[in-house]
């Protein structure tokens, strides 16, 4: 039973983390190649507070606030750059985060922070907390997508300039997406820290950022159900099949490439095409954001 609990916990944390990226990249169309930095910010905040005897439940909002503050700063900076420049800037943020953490003894340096106290809810209780948080954010995502804000996000993702012409404060909505997305990543980080009871700089590097992006893209960028499915599947697949664990990166990257090559809109797009006779509207990029 303990094994299944670990499995479910990992799954729930990955789903929460992937949904947080989906909020920024999927809903609002702002690509991020450094999302693991915010997972890391949350994880380090929560780990260090826990070591200072702050109860686990209080470290969650603290981690969210810390990550969201970082996200707000990055978001403000990112408002100045678009498209490819944005992708590289967010990638830079990821490297900067790891680079700073690695050099500071305050954050445990290369070694990281070990011996994080347990959550105090037992393994089962902790799993339930993780699942509850993941489901809450999934519901929130579904709600937002139908709300006025969701329409604005979609409009920004489709064509930023037209949205601005319509009189909508694009910067404000982008910033909101960034803050919610990074704050949620911080929550996932707090859970991560208490699940593995260890955080180190290597856990939040570029590979982690790409893995979570892979979950979002394999699921179908912007599709809540698709992302939940892909995150749940991709996070536990390496644990279930030993062969995949050995060649984990090769498997991930092969899958990612195949997905891009044959179905760029992910599992969600694949399902839509399979189960619907009405052809799906091809995303119109018209080369204007190239």
């Amino acid at each position: 039973m303990s094994y299944e609990i670990t499995l479910m916990t990992t799954m729930a944390i990955s789903v929460l983390f992937a949904l947080s990226l989906n909020f920024i990249t999927g809903f609002c169309g702002q690509i991020s190649l450094g999302h693991a930095a915010f997972l890391g910010a949350g994880a380090y905040t929560s780990a260090m507070l826990s070591k200072a005897d702050v109860p686990f439940l209080f470290t969650i909002p603290a981690a969210a606030i810390c990550a969201a503050m970082l996200g707000a700063i990055i978001g403000l900076a990112s408002l100045r750059v678009r498209h490819d420049f944005l992708a590289i800037t967010t990638m830079g943020v990821g490297f900067l985060f790891v680079g700073i953490i690695r050099q500071q003894d305050f954050f445990g340096g290369e070694i990281g922070i070990a011996g994080i106290p347990s959550s105090g809810f037992g393994k089962g209780g902790f799993m339930l907390i993780c699942i509850a948080l993941a489901l809450t954010f999934a519901a929130f995502s579904l709600y937002v997508r139908r709300s006025w804000m969701g329409f604005v996000f979609k409009s920004i993702a489709d064509n930023e300039d037209v949205t601005r012409v319509l009189g909508i404060d694009v910067s404000r909505y982008k910033l909101i997406a960034f803050i919610i997305g990074t704050g949620t990543a911080g929550v996932a980080g707090a859970l991560y820290a208490h699940h593995f009871r260890f955080v180190g700089p290597d856990s939040f590097g570029f590979v982690e950022s790409i893995s979570v992006l892979a979950m979002v893209i394999v699921g179908g960028i912007g599709s809540v159900w698709g992302v939940i499915f892909a995150a749940a599947l991709l996070s536990v697949l390496p644990m279930l099949v030993q062969f995949i664990d050995d060649y984990k990166l090769l498997f991930y990257s092969g899958l990612l490439f195949a997905m891009m090559r044959f179905s760029p809109d992910g599992i969600a797009g694949l399902c839509t095409r399979l189960f619907s006779s009405i052809p799906r509207r091809v995303p119109d990029n018209g080369g204007n954001n190239r």
Binding site: I31, H83, D84, A87, V207, I210, L213, A214, I217, Y247, L249, L250, Y252, S253, G254, L256, F257, M260, R261, P264, P283, N285, N289, R290
Partner: peptide, 18 residues
């Protein structure tokens, strides 16, 4: 759209490292 080739390229790179 441009992100597709970017992601494909990253995937290709990670695969080649492996």
């Amino acid at each position: 759209p441009p992100y597709v080739s970017l992601i494909a390229s990253i995937a290709l790179f990670i695969a080649s490292e492996e």
